[in-house]
């Protein structure tokens, strides 16, 4: 069977050492690692942003050869920045993520899924960072791409929305591959199927989250350990 994601020899000079990554079937994969460990670079390489070397196949297809609507259906990328350059409405922001043929009903569906109906008519420059984040996440989810690449999706969200988002991502990972870079190890461990730990531009561990969070890699990479239910410095 064609794997959902087959990436080989991904490399970005000075940021990401040659890296292979495969995802056989839909799953929720979490990237963790210290600042500057290469999480965003790996997401960039997978999304075809910048000068990454290597090959990416999503369902056997090369996303670099796909353009327009076809590419939107293959992959979607949420950057860590929540800045929006122009004061468009929430509704038209979400519509930017959809293929050109999609109608208003599709936009409504996406907004409703993230309970963002109330934000639809408001200008994005008048929203809080958390509200903007929800719209940007909705934009990324909108085309239901095969591969969802999210850079710190839970950042800026309140505790309730962090959990609701993770529940939602867990649900969509039943039919889509979700790759999310995250800092909250507990949140990642609770919802993800698989976890990669990155350090110095390399993948140093790849396993089930429960195993990794309790294992020695977190200690050596982050310099922290769990004591009595909380994370403490070594």
């Amino acid at each position: 069977m064609t794997p959902m994601l087959d990436a080989r020899g991904l490399r970005i000079r000075d940021r990401l050492d040659p890296t292979d990554l495969g995802i056989e079937a839909p799953q929720f994969l979490c990237l963790v690692g210290p600042n500057g460990s290469g999480k965003t670079s790996l997401l960039h390489a997978l999304a075809g942003i910048g000068d990454a070397e290597g090959e990416v196949r999503i369902d056997g297809r090369d996303p670099r050869l796909a353009a327009g609507d076809e590419r939107k259906r293959l992959l979607s990328y949420l950057p860590a920045s929540r800045d929006i350059a122009w004061p468009v409405s929430g509704r038209s922001l979400v519509a930017l993520g959809l293929p050109s043929g999609a109608g208003d009903a599709e936009v409504e569906r996406v907004l409703a899924e993230l309970d963002a109906d109330a934000l639809a008519e408001r200008r994005v420059d008048r929203l809080s960072t958390g509200e903007r984040s929800r719209l940007l996440i909705a934009r990324a989810l909108a085309p239901r791409p095969r591969l969802l690449l999210l850079d710190e999706p839970a950042a800026n969200l309140d505790p309730q929305w962090q959990l609701r988002l993770m529940e939602h991502l867990r649900r969509v990972s039943g039919s889509q591959a979700v790759v999310a870079a995250m800092h909250d190890l507990d949140l990642a461990a609770r919802y993800a199927d698989r976890m990669l730990i990155l350090d110095g531009g390399r993948i140093v561990a790849d396993d089930a989250p429960a195993e990794l969070v309790e294992g020695s890699d977190v200690r050596s990479v982050f310099g922290i350990e769990r004591r009595g239910g909380t994370w403490e410095l070594l």
Partner: peptide
């Protein structure tokens, strides 16, 4: 026009659109 519109979401996203 479409490429310029996608810049609303930033250069990274515009590049991810191809």
């Amino acid at each position: 026009r479409p490429a310029l519109d996608s810049l609303t979401l930033g250069e990274e996203v515009a590049m991810s659109f191809g």
